[in-house]
Design a protein around this nucleic acid. Sequence first.
DNA 1: TGGGTCATGTAACCTGTTACATGATTAG
DNA 2: CTAATCATGTAACAGGTTACATGACCCA
Lengths: 185, 185
Amino acid sequence: MSLKHGLLGLLKYGDMTGYDLDKAFKSSLRPAWNVQTSQIYRELGTMEEKEWLSSRIEIQEGKPNRKYYHITQEGEKELKLWLLEDHVKEELYLRHPFFLQLFFAGENTDEENVKMIQILKERCHSEITNIETMYRDAEEYRNIVKDENRTKYWQLANMLGKSYYQNFINWADEAIEFLNKKEGE
Amino acid sequence: MSLKHGLLGLLKYGDMTGYDLDKAFKSSLRPAWNVQTSQIYRELGTMEEKEWLSSRIEIQEGKPNRKYYHITQEGEKELKLWLLEDHVKEELYLRHPFFLQLFFAGENTDEENVKMIQILKERCHSEITNIETMYRDAEEYRNIVKDENRTKYWQLANMLGKSYYQNFINWADEAIEFLNKKEGE
DNA sequence: TGGGTCATGTAACCTGTTACATGATTAG
DNA sequence: CTAATCATGTAACAGGTTACATGACCCA
């Protein structure tokens, strides 16, 4: 999607290594998507070529060296522009194989589909739990950062993430009821 | 995502050309995502190589010839398996740049962000209108198909699509209220 | 006379995914 | 003793995006 800009955003909090960024991304932007570690390293490479980032290597003993990335002025400019762009235009799709599966679910039996919808529900419940844990873990950062402007939007992102999964759960309940009623007819 | 399986599903309704599939996809699976026409042709090519499809060419006068694709037994088997797989596992992410944007929205002013959220709302309203039109247009198919098992799931997909966008709208209202309240403090 | 529909694609590029590789240290 | 953590990547492939090309017909 826009991994590059996600990384730029995280690097505004401070210099980090690819490893740190991987963890930071996975623990804060998880509702967005699951990034591949290898992709992060690749993107960091091309971002450095574009001069959005600079880097320095810290030598460690016993452990592998750490390569710290730092956001440049170019990078900050790029991030600022991206944050003001309208990304809502064409990219609001419900991009899940599950939706296709549902559309063609008439090819399966109702029992098979109910089972699938139940799995969806469970999965969404556990995602909500993850988000709540994530958010509680972030409390400490909020105490350190004390930048209300930032934390305000973390809260909004948190609300959006949770309601997104809650919506699947609500739909799943309605769907199961609907299928049972049809069954009884 | 799984364009190949989406195309297989559509071809179960009857033989179609790439052009037809493009239109069918865009008018029924639109809440899922917007496929590139060129990608459909490419995928059809590889699907034919895999022998999930066979094709025949119908010569037309004045207009370009039409290349009809037909789902093979191999293709049907593949679709059946795919429809029973668990696609909910790792792929339920809210995969939108908007989420990243929101997470880092503290870099913008509140006014800029409220404007952005309002654009989101409008866009979601128009998506819901699109889905409703789409669904009404599909009524005729439902009368022809008369396969209640299929149409039942079209209805569920329709419900999911609408609630997905409605959820953004509800969130947007809360978010705007939240930002205004914070502003007043 | 210009734009839309019909109908097919190719080429290049960018992004995402999967698999693999290394090698030391630390905790259960 | 085994698994996890620390920390870096490369290679190959699959899937998505953008730009371009062709050419006739139809409608305002």
